[in-house]
Design a protein around this nucleic acid. Sequence first.
RNA 1: GCGGGCGUGGCGGAAUUGGUAGACGCAUCGGACUUAAAAUCCGAAGCCGCAUGGCGUGGGGGUUCGAGUCCCCCCGCCCGCACCA
Length: 856
Amino acid sequence: MSRYNVKETEAKWQAVWEQRACFAAREDAARPKYYVLEMFPYPSGRIHMGHVRNYTIGDVIARYKRSKGFNVLHPMGWDAFGLPAENAALEKGVHPAKWTRENIAAMRAQLKSMGLSVDWDREIATCDVEYYRHEQKMFLDFYKAGLAYRKESWVNWDPVDNTVLANEQVIDGRGWRTGALVEKRKLSQWFLKITHFADDLLKGIEELDRWPERVRLMQENWIGKSTGVRFRFEIKGRSERLEVFTTRPDTLFGASFAAISPNHPLAAELAQGNPELAAFIAECNRLGTSEEAIETAEKRGFDTGLKVVHPFDPSWELPVCVANFVLMEYGTGAIFGCPAHDQRDLDFARKYGLAVTPVVIPEDADPATFTIGDEAYTGPGVLRNSAFLDGLDVETAKEEAGKRLEAAGQGERTTQYRLRDWGVSRQRYWGCPIPMIHCESCGVVPVPEDQLPVVLPEDVTFDKPGNPLSHHPTWKHTTCPSCGKPAVRETDTFDTFIESSWYPARYCSPHEEKAGFTREAVDYWMPVDQYIGGIEHAVLHLLYSRFWTRALRHCGYWDITEPFAGLFTQGMVNHETYKDAGTGGWLSPADIVKNDRGEMVRADNGAPVTVGRVEKMSKSKKNVVDPANIIDSYGADAARLFMLSDSPPERDLEWTEAGIDGAWRYISRLWRMITEPPVDLPAAGTPLPADLGDTAQAARRLIHKAISGVSDDLEKFRFNKAVARVRELSNALGELDGKGPGEAWVLREGFEALVRMIGPMMPHLAEELWTQLGHTTLLADQPWPEADAALATDDTITVAVQVNGKRRAEIALPRDCANDVAQATALADPNVARAMEGKPARKVIVVPNRVINVVV
RNA sequence: GCGGGCGUGGCGGAAUUGGUAGACGCAUCGGACUUAAAAUCCGAAGCCGCAUGGCGUGGGGGUUCGAGUCCCCCCGCCCGCACCA
């Protein structure tokens, strides 16, 4: 019995595919293109199971589409700038560039061991100047087009390290390295005007019909469009006015206060002469901005003593409070409070004894008795107690109130977005330099295009805290392109989301030197037909890419609007967690064994182990399984098969030892079944014999049903079902002894179909079996099998017969047989007759080819 | 709090979208091969019952000839978020 030699076989075919450049993509107008892209990895050093799942899914799609005749582009590269490289420099003294490039080399080898159908000739790394130089040019074009600008913005500042911290480096308000209390500092930073496209980005979501609904929803909420009115209150005794935004101008007659954010300039001004208010503001700021804090926080306010005048009634004055639930970042940082129709305002009013006047009465309520309890009324209704708005419905009243404010010059109807402009400056070394120069006489001057690229210097040191670019002896010193006087370069670098915003385009012409991409290449390949990655990028990366695509169109780079026509978000790879029952410390799966009583114990000392819940693989919980070890012992195909089996790809998957064993067993079984058939198979290409017996005939039906089913499953990314169907077919073929008329021929047909169908999932095994079946071609170049529609549908169908909705019998009927024949056959069945207990059928429902229900 | 999703055997999951619930796999049990074990192969199995049969898709109700699927109420779990005026 020959054993399948995984290691040798997988290495052999990987080499063959590479030598023959099987997966090199060329533009070809004659063939339909298909661009499959998995989110490119950050070169952390080793691949993890999430990568294996991601790239397996992508590779199945890529190989399947290839076999269906598409001209497939399936590239790979590295999201190579970012903070971890700088941390490595600080912790291990390795230069970020060296660390990154070594990681890339290691991970490239690991990815190649998966047998991906990637065009490695198109590999890119975003830290290469050949890559990032092009985004410097794009940024300058955005600047010219008014899409990039500079403004003051807050950063987290670590006073000990004298460095800016990213949000994730701030833990409980302290710097992650120094433990020092983080300060807020204002710095001048670069922003991209994503808000310019707010409405377009929102409208575009409607067209993304191959995106998951929940990602579309998350983006919609993130953009957060609301329409309303911006108007100005007159402040008693002061010359300036208080501007507020509201979506409910219809409820203005129910107003009982105005409130401003603790961070509102007016609050700051008043606090100067009022230590109590200053203390209140400080207290509000202390209260964390975490969701939990906000949720449990009580609505609190501080009466400033100021009064504002109601816009529709000069004799009506409202108190102005500083309130902890008003956000400076949204709208104008000030609101008017209508307790009857807004829950937060109601909570606030109840606490401080302010008036609660209902002005919208539900259609079915009695206006004389309608009152508000502890729940604000936010539904539809008719306006009351509202002067000129009385009797109007909510929508009409909103419009009318808006018009009045506009007519009086007090306000205007506007649209408000939650979306804020994208701050792209990072006070970091390992990123793309922002191509700008600061001149004392000329101010900010863009680097002239002929001086691009601004190359990130690699001769830097990390011995001083802060950004090494600022400490570099020469790099930042230059001359002003405008006046020629000495000037300094911008030492900030770009947010790494910029690199990932346009990399799909770079893959289309990765070696182009003059531009980020050529028009011909992107016109042919873009947009990406299928993008695959984790849900964690649902908002930022995917939204920034959509923005960047629009910004490029705005600047005449191309005509496309959306970078990703289809999006698939895969689930996580999880694993059981283990703790030492005595010490409570986390244990790795590798440290655990089953003892002879079937209990989980420590491998080293036999101590009992508590098995915890199944959770996302993470270093901290030690429930990580290294794919390299798995591929080493079971092979890439087994790992790939496991990733595709059982769990639907969008759901979380639990990695288990038993599961990978099962995958390996199936591979061995297929190998044995096909390399040691029960009878000699006819030569490849032997025509269909005339004398097919019933067994052979039935087996052919199963083969063609499987082809049709698997094709359908792969089209819909239902890989778990495709695997189940493939196994079903191999079970059926395994039962044939090949001795009956035509059976040997059918075995060959079945094996070939099987091998073609596992091609995308287990490409090495499939390629090897293809050779074993006597072919000299490459399976990778073979077309997907075609199902014979006549064979894929049964001509006799087993139909269930129900009596009063309960299944009582099964009968065999010719496909699509006449209803009266079906009915007669059903009623003639003895089990049916018995269940009917001699009563006449009142009604018989016949669902063709499905079910017959007799009602008595 | 708001928004979204989910709940099916011991487990992962399937069910042609209102038509035979439990495909396929894992674990389990029985048998064959073996001195034995492993591997492999064959077979059994939702639950209750010896059986005719009954019960069964988180719980309760409804619509329907027929409900895992549709509607209403409740329970539990997961994810996202922004007190958004």
